[in-house]
């Protein structure tokens, strides 16, 4: 089993005809993803040849959904056009919309998050690596060949730290790894993923990776205390980040006394979540958590 994305997911790619879209569509296909359509306004009727599969291109998400039954959209369009693309997916009632694009204005994210909440779409991202259910499907840019299928769930703000952890624990494998994105406002939170992993019979334990900025980790800690029975181990990046400097991700900034890595670590440890000092130690903690079950 897995969360949000399974072998039955029928994936369409918005912006598939662009360079990034084409490159990553090929990679997703190689990871076993059932890519059923591409969407590029004005290019309906065309198709793109990926070797073993030729993927039809539609002019709108609504057309693509009607013709192919797509139920996941992955968005690779430039920031200027991202809001429009996502709102189109929401209007077409696509159940899952994964927004890879980096540099989306926060106002746009707030707006499409609200529209999605009022409709029937889950948004992951923006500015995220997407999600992968190894051996089943990949929606985004997480490399499939550095890990394997298994029973650990992972949720992270950071792409490369996701890669690091799924690689370190590749022998045990993952049900699903979700990169929720490093922007201040994202569609799916740590808590949404924790809830889904808790309910997923295919997930035995959860790795949560956080970083400085905001209070999502503190909220996740409170949620874990009240709702999560499966073992959770965590890692928090950014202990050495100075106040007021943005560390790469738009959301990764310590302002005043809030958003520090130390506060996040303490909040997690207070509810019994073991927090690794390094990614490698976090992987070790996960192994011992699984051994103890």
């Amino acid at each position: 089993m897995a969360i949000f994305l399974t072998k039955d997911s029928r994936v369409l790619v918005q912006g598939m005809t662009g360079a990034e879209g084409r490159r990553h569509t090929a990679r997703m296909l190689a990871a076993g993803t059932d890519i059923v359509a591409g969407v590029t306004p004005g290019k309906g009727g065309a198709s793109v040849d990926f070797g073993e599969r030729t993927v039809p291109v539609f002019g709108s998400v609504a057309d693509a959904v009607e013709e192919t039954g797509a139920d996941v959209s992955v968005v690779f369009v430039p920031p200027k056009f991202t809001a429009g693309a996502v709102e189109e997916a929401i209007a077409a009632q696509v159940p899952l919309c994964v927004v890879i694009t980096e540099g989306v204005p926060v106002h746009d994210a707030v707006r499409f998050r609200a529209l999605a909440a009022a409709g029937s779409t889950r948004i992951i991202g923006p500015n995220c690596p997407g999600l992968i259910s190894p051996g089943q499907s990949s929606a985004g840019i997480i490399p499939a060949d550095i890990t394997s299928a298994g029973r650990i769930g992972l949720v992270s703000k950071s792409g490369t730290l996701t890669y690091q952890l799924i690689y370190e624990l590749r022998d045990l494998g993952f049900s699903t790894a979700v990169g929720i994105g490093g922007d201040p406002v994202v569609g799916t939170t740590h808590i949404d993923c924790l809830r889904a992993f808790e309910e997923d019979p295919g997930t035995d334990a959860i790795v949560m990776i956080g970083e400085i900025g905001g209070d999502a980790e503190e909220r996740a800690a409170a949620y874990i205390a009240a709702n999560v029975t499966k073992p959770v181990v965590a890692y928090v990046a950014g202990f050495t980040a100075p106040e007021g400097k943005t560390m790469g991700h738009a959301g990764a900034i310590v302002s005043g006394s809030s958003g520090t890595a130390q506060a996040k670590k303490e909040a997690l440890e207070a509810v019994g979540v073991r927090v690794g000092k390094t990614p490698t130690e976090t992987a070790r903690l996960m192994r011992s958590a699984l051994d103890a079950r």
């Binding site: 992270s156 703000k157 950071s158 792409g159 490369t160 730290l161 996701t162 890669y163 690091q164 490093g182 990776i209 970083e211 400085i212 890692y235 990046a237 950014g238 202990f239 050495t240 980040a241 560390m247 790469g248 991700h249 990764a252 890595a261 000092k277 390094t278 990614p279």
Partner: peptide
């Protein structure tokens, strides 16, 4: 990657 670099700073400090 921002996350990995942030993490590297911490590991250096450690």
């Amino acid at each position: 990657g921002a996350g990995l670099v942030m993490s590297t700073l911490d590991v250096v400090a450690g």
